[in-house]
């Protein structure tokens, strides 16, 4: 039987014990209000990022250089829509409604990964996005497979299975450019120059400045800190850039024998703040496009609903 006498402190202790014991928290379990809020914020941000991320790449579907590249890009962008769905569903198990989340995105109350506020200017950007942006996302998502909230963890496992295709197709298309003509190689280098720093920003502020980090680590919502994940990403990416014969646009980048890691330069945090708070190159455009797609689809939802109502009436009459 449910014990009515337990107080919040006791419940919180049992909750934390379960988390410490690496057990998953499931939707109907008791959880601290802060844990629920924190998760809804993080998962919905993550979902919005997947969906808004379809735009810079969708921009190139009609202009992909070959039919094969076009099919690949279509499949990838469709995957990202699916990732959004997995994540919205996970957030809904916490009591957040899809409508509320979409509304928060449209009203600018909800954030998404700031990287998608940069424009995709050339075809080389598409390969670079797959390589760097999906690459950075994978580093983060692999660690989140072990997040303490069951539905979030399961969504991450599903997503990680699909992400490797995203990164590999991007890198493969960059090999073609980097080993192609001088113009093609220059185009690949230009794309790397523009996407490198925003990719590093994807991991968020330094640990010391990260508002939610400490508590998120204690609750095991996050499993690795921003700076650790960023270092993992740099370490794995530098040799890949070398293989392409492209140069990472950071004069401070060098191998540190003692640490066993690459040292790298400081991110332009002012730019990070500017873009995350709505003043990047494409912020307004991204949200307006999402809103328009949502509004343009209203008649489909209305028609479906009307049809269901009609069917229900008929079966009542019969």
């Amino acid at each position: 039987m449910t014990e009515f006498s337990v107080n919040d402190a006791e419940l919180e202790k049992r909750f934390q014990d379960r988390v410490d014991d690496e057990q998953k928290i499931e939707p109907k379990d008791w959880m601290p209000e802060g844990y629920r809020k924190n998760l809804i914020r993080q998962i919905s941000q993550h979902a919005h990022s997947e969906v808004i991320g379809m735009q810079p790449e969708g921009n190139w579907i009609s202009r992909a250089p070959t039919l094969r590249r076009k099919m690949i890009l279509l499949a990838k962008v469709q995957d990202e829509g699916g990732h959004g769905l997995y994540l919205y569903s996970a957030a809904e198990t916490l009591g957040a409604s899809r409508e509320e989340m979409v509304e928060a995105l449209h009203e600018g109350r909800a954030k998404y990964a700031s990287i998608f506020n940069y424009p995709s200017l050339t075809w080389a950007d598409i390969g670079t996005i797959g390589w760097l942006v999906d690459g950075a996302a994978i580093v983060n998502q692999i660690s989140l497979q072990r997040t303490s909230y069951g539905p979030y963890s399961r969504a991450m496992i599903r997503i990680c299975k699909e992400e490797s295709f995203h990164q590999r197709q991007g890198y493969e298309s960059l090999i073609a450019l980097a080993h192609g003509s001088a113009e093609q190689k220059a185009m690949a280098q230009d794309a790397l120059n523009r996407w490198w720093w925003p990719s590093l920003m994807m991991f968020g502020p330094h640990d010391a400045e990260s508002a939610h980090s400490g508590q998120s680590m204690k609750w095991k919502i996050k499993r690795k800190s921003n700076d650790t994940l960023r270092q993992d990403f740099v370490d794995q990416t530098v040799p890949q850039a070398d293989f392409l014969g492209l140069e990472i646009p950071d004069p401070d980048l060098k191998w540190n024998e003692e640490r066993g890691h690459y040292d790298f330069g400081e991110i332009d945090w002012e730019e990070f703040q500017r873009v995350i708070s709505g003043d990047g190159m494409c912020n307004r455009d991204r949200v307006a496009t999402h809103k328009k797609a949502h509004d343009d689809g209203a008649w489909v939802r209305d028609a479906l609903r009307a049809y269901e109502a009609k069917k229900a009436n008929k079966s009542e009459a019969a």
């Binding site: 769905l85 569903s89 899809r98 969504a155 479906l304 609903r305 049809y307």
Partner: peptide, 11 residues
Amino acid sequence: VGSLHAENPEQ
């Protein structure tokens, strides 16, 4: 495997 919103079972 997960959940989704739809108007009816067929959809």
